[in-house]
């Protein structure tokens, strides 16, 4: 069956809420009926057909073509199937994502993967602020799954993350990994100020040594970690090839919070 495809007809002026267009909800529906579905905009309601040409059948495999940063909440709350976004995505991409895969060829705006709990989100480009962080009303940020960011990440990446894995191919903004409760973040590029601020548990792994390391981290020296082998192999299984090596400098912190987390600065 061909993928159920949503091709954007014209660039929307106001943000569109595409959270209804997920495999869970569209299973068994005809393209014609889907085009008639209500599509909430920032302040009103349009129909899916107003903005998208809908073709194909297979709701377990969604495609969005030509989307822009006004296309919000793509894949939000989705729990199954695969979604491919050929274009950019707006805010709350894959927020509260519960399972399946979501891939974006372009960039995503704020709150990408926020409060996701399972599945894999793979964004080839950059993401805005608070990716993998909290959404409004949540007590925790990302709670599981994998969030792969090919490009740069905005500030407050992974704020109060509780479980799961995030990788950043490029650079990350300030307060990356702030208040993380648990989970793992791999930074391949640079990070902004106050990375790991208020970290309770969890691992921040840096390919490049951060320019600033918070004074409330305790240096534990360079050690060999079997764990790095495991991580490297797990990433490889997900198509992310990165050499982590065996040794890393370990700093424990943030002593301002619980102090049971770590920074691993790879050698």
């Amino acid at each position: 069956m061909s993928a159920l495809t949503f091709e954007l007809k014209q660039a929307p002026e106001e943000p569109l809420d595409l959270s209804a267009l997920i495999p869970d909800r569209l299973a068994g529906m005809k393209a014609k009926d889907i085009a008639g579905l209500a599509l909430p905009t920032l302040a009103g309601t349009a129909s899916v057909g107003d903005y998208f040409k809908v073709t194909g059948k297979d709701a377990a495999s969604l495609r969005f073509l030509g989307t822009t940063d006004r296309c919000d909440r793509i894949g939000a709350g989705s729990s199954e199937g695969e979604i491919l976004v050929d274009g950019d995505a707006g805010a709350y991409l894959g927020a509260k994502f519960k399972g399946g895969t979501l891939e974006v060829t372009g960039n995503a705006a704020a709150y990408a993967g926020a409060a996701m709990s399972n599945g894999t989100i793979d964004i080839k480009g950059n993401v805005g602020e608070r990716a993998g962080g909290l959404t409004v009303g949540e007590v925790h940020g990302m709670r599981g799954g994998r969030l792969f960011i090919g490009g740069n990440a905005g500030p407050y990446l992974a704020e109060r993350m509780r479980r799961g894995l995030i990788t950043v191919g490029g650079d990350a903004g300030e307060y990356a990994g702030a208040r993380v409760v648990a989970g793992t973040i791999l930074f391949q590029g640079k990070v902004g100020r106050n990375a790991g601020y208020g970290l309770k548990r969890g691992s921040l792994i840096f390919k490049k040594k951060p320019k600033q390391i918070l004074p409330t981290y305790a240096d534990c020296g360079v050690i060999e970690f079997t764990y790095l082998n495991l991580l490297e192999r797990a990433l490889k299984a997900d198509g992310i090839k990165v050499r982590l090596g065996r040794e890393a400098q370990r700093l424990m912190g943030d002593m301002a919070a619980l102090g049971k987390g770590e920074m691993l600065i790879l050698r």
Partner: peptide
């Protein structure tokens, strides 16, 4: 209390 849990795949 110093142990860490990691979930991979």
């Amino acid at each position: 209390g110093w142990q860490m849990s990691k979930v991979l795949n």
